[in-house]
Write a protein that binds this DNA or RNA. Structure first.
Lengths: 153, 153
DNA sequence: CGACGCATGTCAAAATGCTGACATGACCGA
DNA sequence: TCGGTCATGTCAGCATTTTGACATGCGTCG
């Protein structure tokens, strides 16, 4: 069987709650909850805000691009985009001029809504990094990247 | 609550992908995917494995306890527990003897399944912390904890 | 004792996300 | 030119999760 690894724990970790994965999941869950609460006042969900932020930064992103950027499937991203379009926050051409990708763009209303919500989200992030020494932040980001890449990206 | 950081952003971060939240979400998504793939061979989902691990560590946990431990609602945890019970991996008394909480316990089959899957999960975690200097791991865990606590836990 | 708050388990309905599948259009190598 | 390959958008079905609500049991305080 797969018992070739005698499970040599590099570090004791007799408690599951000591594992990196558990902590990671816990922090991500806390962040998700805080963002949900912060965005509710602005009438946005986390996936919606993520798409808006991505589109503000790089206008013309396609549905598949946004799906990759928000770590969901194309189908889920399509639902989000449809909702944003119905709300008048983004526009998408009915037909593609080049390939099959439909480039999405923020409407003035979308930009306005994003700017309003951005303050709340940034406040959450600022609150989150409270307690983390500023000089250790780069190392933290680097470690997160290293872990992501080690998992096959 | 003195704003000792009057400077708008302590670090530029003109790009969303530079934000801590984005990296955190990305790493958590990668971990979730890797764990899904690793557990599929053992016929378990991530929530199921989480419950099994928690129950192995602290037998007698109630449904609500497991919900809190896996960061989901009681209803979701109930579905997971029902599935584990149908699979014969856990047992739960039909009636509560003290309060209303029904203490769950691993069956021998559940313990065996958990031990088999644990190797795969630990391998994923070991692979994830590849690239992260071992001496910086404690700081990483501490930072994750600090961020979680700062978000109100 | 009795009422209230609180936690728990559970049901029903809705929202959300994913898997599988299909058709279309661009790109590339033979 | 043509055939294969890949990426995209979209549809349908299913699984998972959440929201909202309700009943039950315990503890506490009046």
């Amino acid at each position: 069987m797969t018992e070739r690894t005698p499970v040599p724990p590099p570090h004791p970790a007799q408690d599951v709650t000591e594992h990196v994965g558990y902590r990671l999941k816990r922090t991500a869950a806390a962040l998700r909850g805080a963002m949900d609460r912060a965005l509710r006042e602005h009438g946005l969900t986390v996936p919606q805000y993520s798409c808006l932020e991505l589109l503000d930064e790089r206008p013309g992103l396609s549905n598949a691009d946004l799906a990759r950027g928000t770590f969901v499937t194309r189908q889920s991203a399509n639902v989000v985009l449809r909702g944003l379009g119905d709300a008048g926050l983004i526009t998408r051409p009915a037909t593609a001029d080049h390939g099959r990708a439909l480039p999405a763009h923020l409407t003035p209303a979308g930009r306005e809504r994003l700017h309003a919500a951005r303050g709340a989200v940034y406040a959450v992030e600022a609150r989150m990094i409270t307690g983390v020494p500023a000089d250790r932040l780069p190392a933290l980001l680097a470690d997160l990247d290293a872990m992501t890449e080690a998992l096959g990206d």
